[in-house]
Amino acid sequence: MLRDVLFAPFSEFEFMRRALAAVIALSLGSGPIGVFLMLRRMSLVGDAMAHAILPGAAIGFLLSGLNLFAMTTGGLVAGFAVALLSGLVSRSTGLKEDASLATFYLASLALGVTIVSVKGTNIDLLHVLFGNILAMDDPTLLMVATNATITLVVLAVIYRPLVVESVDPLFLRTVSRAGAPAHLIFLGLIVVNLVNGFQALGTLLAVGLMILPAGIARFWSRDVTPMICIAVGSAIVSGYIGLVLSFQTRIPSGPAIILVASLIYLGSVLFGRVGGVLPQLFPGRHLEA
């Protein structure tokens, strides 16, 4: 019985297996990116960026219809453009990154919605906004996996300056020039992973697989490395349970995945070992030293 619920969907239906593979690949890339977004206090930057990639995807859609490759390329171009422009503006003028990004992403979002609504139908708009993880064809799946691989390799390369810049940016500036490039590359990785999630979860929820797992991880560890592992793990678990839930109840798959992640997050807020609500309310007797 339990086996039917938990495993049968995947053994019987290919599209479910593809969806699971996609969500695992997504989790591997988005987990660590989300942790760094959170630690650099950029969680909302991820959200803004998700909107910023819309016009690029819309232009891709305008040129070649509902072709995921074209939409992804467009999204990447738009995302990189917004990320680089806002990064350069904030680094060269002293305007804070969030303010700089907010201006760029609003313009970008308005442009994107305009393009989609001028050309497409409401169904198209829905697809762009919410994605469809149950419709992963081979090229799309391959692209999701490639993007996740690129993310992990590049992150490994910029890991050290990224960590040092997060904790002590002034120090990094006095010993190395790697800070600014690492930051810009990191912004690029955010875009890559958003476009990745975009296929599966749509523009609105793509950022969910970054932010929620990172939030969960924060409540269970005090060190970056375990945090990243926990984030990836909880993203995969959310993806799996979300897919099963969506299969059994007909809740759309994207929202189901994010809802499951939200529930795990809620549990972590309540019971998390590091700063959770209940451990704070009932900390136990104080120690001797």
């Binding site: 630690l39 390369v157 910029i158 050290r160 300056p161 960590v163 040092v164 997060s166 904790v167 002590d168 940016p169 002034l170 120090f171 010993v175 190395s176 790697a178 560890s221 005090r222 060190d223 970056v224 945090m227």
Partner: peptide, 26 residues
């Protein structure tokens, strides 16, 4: 010091960044 004290890094790892000149990025 412009240090984010909430960043989850240990004293050992933090001090080790002083070796940057010899270790560099990799």
């Amino acid at each position: 010091a412009d240090i984010d004290r909430s960043f989850p890094i240990s004293v050992f790892d933090f001090v080790s960044t002083g070796l940057w000149r010899s270790t560099g990025m990799f």
